[in-house]
Amino acid sequence: MKRLILSLALLSSDVLLPATAAEPPASLAPCCRTAPTNAPPTEGSLYQLESLWTSDLGVRVPLATFGGRIQVLALFFSRCEYACPILGQDLKRVQEALPASIRDQVDFVLVSLDSERETPETLAAYRREQRLGTDHWALLTGSVDDVRELAALLGVNYRKDGRGQFAHSNLYTVLNGRGEILRQQIGLQQDPAPVVAAIRRALEPAGP
């Protein structure tokens, strides 16, 4: 099943990429790239998860799709009234703080906690509101169980309150190309410099 989706994604990007301007940017978006399939995931890789996630661009992908590149990942939900807009801003600040030389090698993934109400449409609206480009930003929603599992792996605690808001840990996670946790940043509005430094170090050995 996963293979099928992957190969479909592969097929569509292969077929669609050469196509001209009319094509949506979907084929370039992080969600729609092909996963590096040669190496089996390492012991600590989040890409061992078999769960499938739906992007605002309408594709269903395993997290392994994001392999091979640095990913900065946070859990959020588009209806958030408290901290999520700030968390989103924090991720944008990381992107802006990246040296131009490596900015293109880092992607950002926002995964919704709100499995029941989040849809590709609400994610797409959030993308527009927050002006998140499709070239480096992926927005995902998944099943209640799969979100609980991903959150458990990231050490994110959360619960839904009586008003349909989610109280949740404010942290984001940097994954290396193998899907291992490279660094986590706890708390809102922290200085992005240490995170940027960690990303630089991770990219250096791979170098040009």
């Binding site: 605690n157 959360y158 619960r159 309150d161 109280a167 840990s169």
Partner: peptide, 22 residues
């Protein structure tokens, strides 16, 4: 992992307020 307070009451101040929304 739905629990948003730590077992240690000292944890519920300072950094934990930063960590946990709400």
């Amino acid at each position: 992992n739905a629990a948003l307070v730590t077992g240690d009451a000292r944890g519920d101040t300072g950094i934990e307020r930063q960590l946990f929304c709400g």
